[in-house]
């Protein structure tokens, strides 16, 4: 019996809500060292990688590795039924049948919820992902996740051009980052400057630029990442015209969630 046990229901609720908009299936790997999740979206433009070390969980027990592809929408629905302080136990039989059982136990209510999920294909993941080198990127922007969420919200409210997927153009130049979206009847632009760390030492916006860069992304990827970014105070955006962009939020030194996104060519 393989049986990871953990107490991070709220965290997983948020992760699954953010990911299930964009990614249908994900590959989950529980091991002694923690959890690794990877998923690719159906248009194969974005890859999400979540790493959460065992120490990130209040309670984490995993004697043997367990890896499987699961449907994210089904999981999000199951987690919506769970209480925030539930203890989650994940069980798969050793003979490797094709289902896994998630049990949510509410110590307070004395209630146990059980969901069986069939294994599904995981759409080409997991992939080998080497640690990325910041030096390879033309520009790196760090800002509070709340600020990033506000920008995405503004762009979304204006960026619906009707007949095609809305896009955003992110440009870094002269120590400022500009986000631009075109809607049916106008455009929306947000410019962020590097902020004085003395004024707001806890919420700096930092822009490191080696050279100017301007890239086009589908807005839906920004929106999904901005939901996931609630897991952390700060986001880091690595931009290059040669490499997939990396949108990252670190989870309190205990892991990270990263979106690798191919910019649009046009």
């Amino acid at each position: 019996m393989l049986e990871p046990r953990l107490v991070q229901t709220t965290f997983f609720k948020n992760v699954l809500e953010a990911l299930s908009d964009l990614f249908i299936e994900a590959h989950f790997e529980f091991s002694r060292t923690g959890l690794e999740l990877q998923a690719i979206d159906t248009s194969r433009v974005a890859l999400v990688a979540l790493v959460l070390r065992a120490e990130a969980f209040n309670h984490y027990l995993c004697d043997r590795g367990l890896s499987m592809g699961l449907n994210l929408a089904d999981m999000a629905k199951a987690f919506r039924c769970a209480n925030n302080d539930d203890i989650i136990t994940i069980k798969a039989e050793e003979d490797w049948t094709d289902t896994v059982t998630f049990t949510f136990e509410s110590p307070e209510d004395g209630e146990i919820l059980e969901f069986d999920f069939d294994f599904v294909g995981s759409n080409g993941v997991p992939l080998e992902i080497p640690e990325y080198q910041e030096s390879e990127y033309q520009a790196i922007v760090r800002m509070p996740s709340a600020k990033f969420m506000r920008i995405c919200k503004k762009l979304s409210s204006f960026g619906d051009s009707g007949d095609r997927d809305p896009v955003v153009i992110i440009s870094v130049y002269k120590e400022r980052v500009r986000s631009f979206a075109r809607g049916k009847t106008g455009t929306s632009t947000t410019v962020c400057l590097q902020t004085q760390t003395v004024d707001k030492p806890k919420e700096p916006t930092l822009i490191e630029m080696k050279e100017e860069v301007s890239l086009i992304f589908d807005l839906k990827y920004m929106n999904s990442f901005s939901k996931a970014s609630t897991l952390s105070d700060q986001v880091t955006i690595n931009l290059s015209s040669e490499l997939p962009a990396v949108f990252e939020c670190k989870i309190a030194e205990l892991g990270y969630i990263r979106y690798y996104i191919s910019p649009r060519k046009e």
């Binding site: 080409g124 997991p126 080497p130 690798y260 191919s262």
Partner: peptide, 14 residues
């Protein structure tokens, strides 16, 4: 688990 290739080859294919 066994990996199904590298992220760079995935993005090159796209």
């Amino acid at each position: 688990g066994s990996k199904q290739g590298s992220i760079m080859s995935f993005f090159k294919k796209v």
